[in-house]
């Protein structure tokens, strides 16, 4: 009986959208970084699948319709970059330098650490995109032969860590320039970090979101030349 329902695409789709709706209202009620809608939404789905012993494949038949919108949504990121055009023009050189340094440092440090820890090629490919936003990261992971769910987990871990620690890192490294802290947050912890940067100030927030877009593109370009 239950299987008749869960094997249909509408089940996975509804579960996905429903869990997200609940996660959004949780976020609205308790505004805390750890309670991000992706994490809470996914946990709700996992809980329901395991309680009712529903196979992951049944969920994905419907949930994959949701993933279909990812391509167009990524393209739409151009609009948020375009809306920041004034800030980009005003700080062109610092933004370009910061984004190139940020993307290069992220890739180099991840490759070095993976080698030090003896991680295999598949795991390295999964971790390489961890500092860029999920829309770019999942595509890059696929392209490099990584495990996409591991990449998503790494991106979320990085983003949550970055968002929580950003104010402390600014103090620790004595960063007083808002452009510098905005770029550092965006380059190191993508969209999740940016949500914290917006709380710190207007310049921090808008520079951080520019860094997310630029670092994403630069990382994808660097990855063309990376072999491991």
């Amino acid at each position: 009986m239950l299987e008749n329902i869960t094997s249909q695409p509408i089940f996975g789709f509804s579960l996905c959208v429903g869990a997200y709706t609940i996660a959004l209202s949780v976020k609205r009620r308790f505004n805390y970084t750890l309670l991000n809608p992706l994490l809470v939404g996914a946990l709700i789905v996992i809980a329901i699948l395991s309680v009712f012993k529903i196979p992951l494949e049944s969920f994905l038949t419907g949930a994959n319709f949701v993933s279909m919108f990812l391509g167009p949504a990524t393209a739409a990121l151009a609009i948020s970059m375009y809306n920041q055009l004034d800030t980009i023009k005003k700080n062109l050189l610092p933004i370009l330098v910061g984004s190139v340094v940020g993307a290069a440092t992220a890739v180099a440090s991840i490759l070095l650490l993976c080698k030090m820890f003896g991680l295999n090629a598949e795991m390295t490919a999964s971790l390489l995109p961890k500092s860029i936003t999920t829309a770019f990261g999942t595509e890059l992971s696929k392209q490099l032969g990584g495990i996409v769910p591991i990449t998503v987990a790494a991106i979320s871990t990085t983003g949550i860590f970055g968002a929580i620690t950003a104010p402390y890192l600014i103090k620790l490294f004595k960063i007083k320039n808002p452009v510098a802290s905005g770029l550092a947050i965006g380059a190191s912890s993508h969209v999740l970090g940016t949500s914290k940067a917006i709380e710190l100030g207007e310049v921090e927030g808008s520079v951080s979101s520019i860094a997310v877009g630029l670092c994403g593109i630069i990382t994808v370009i660097i990855a063309i030349f990376v072999r491991f």
Partner: peptide
């Protein structure tokens, strides 16, 4: 975030 629930 909704679009990333399936891979998560």
């Amino acid at each position: 975030p909704l679009l990333f629930i399936p891979p998560t």
